[in-house]
């Protein structure tokens, strides 16, 4: 590290051994930093989640007499029956995820005032999308099943 040494250093060719080593070292340190930030992110991203299953049974059609509009809290769907037609409509507000209230005339969200008609179409407020309808089906044992993994087009009723 003497003065003489430094002088030599400067006069030698542009790519000295020292420069290459310094470059490699700093690349190594920066690379490790990037890898460690990345692996930390991977670490905090859970691989398994404990959420509810997307398919669930809701009982037999007899549990829902014609005219029913009822909200199932745990599953966050409204079950609706008009005559022999049934539907499962999400009650999670498409705005920011509050649970909408179910009434005769439609759905209303208490959080920022979104309004939906009986079929879940937006009639007011900030909600950007209508409430999705989920697939309803009849299991072999005669119970109705909702699959929240499968959306169906609004107005596609299930006939019981």
């Amino acid at each position: 590290m003497s003065e003489k040494h430094n002088a030599q250093e400067e006069s030698s060719e542009p790519i000295s051994r020292r420069k290459v080593l310094a470059w490699l070292t700093s690349m190594g340190i920066m690379g490790s930093a990037v890898v460690s930030v990345f692996s930390n992110l991977v670490f905090i991203k859970p691989r398994a989640t404990y959420g509810q299953p997307t398919r669930f049974s809701i009982g037999t059609p007899d549990d829902y007499p014609p005219g029913t509009r009822i909200a199932l809290g745990d599953q966050k769907v409204a079950i609706i029956r008009e005559g022999s037609k049934m539907a499962a409509i999400s009650i999670t507000c498409t705005h920011l995820g509050c649970i909408v209230g179910v009434s005769e005339t439609g759905f209303a969200c208490p959080c920022h005032g979104s309004r939906f008609d009986q079929d879940g179409n937006v009639t007011g407020g900030p909600a950007p999308k209508p409430l999705p309808w989920y697939e309803l089906s009849m299991a072999p044992n005669g119970e109705l099943e909702v699959d929240k993994g499968k959306e169906v087009t609004a107005g596609k009723w299930f006939t019981v």
Partner: peptide, 13 residues
């Protein structure tokens, strides 16, 4: 959102 919640819904995680 997923990183913050640690799950798909709001709960223990």
């Amino acid at each position: 959102r997923f990183l913050l919640l640690g799950d798909t819904t709001v709960g223990q995680e």
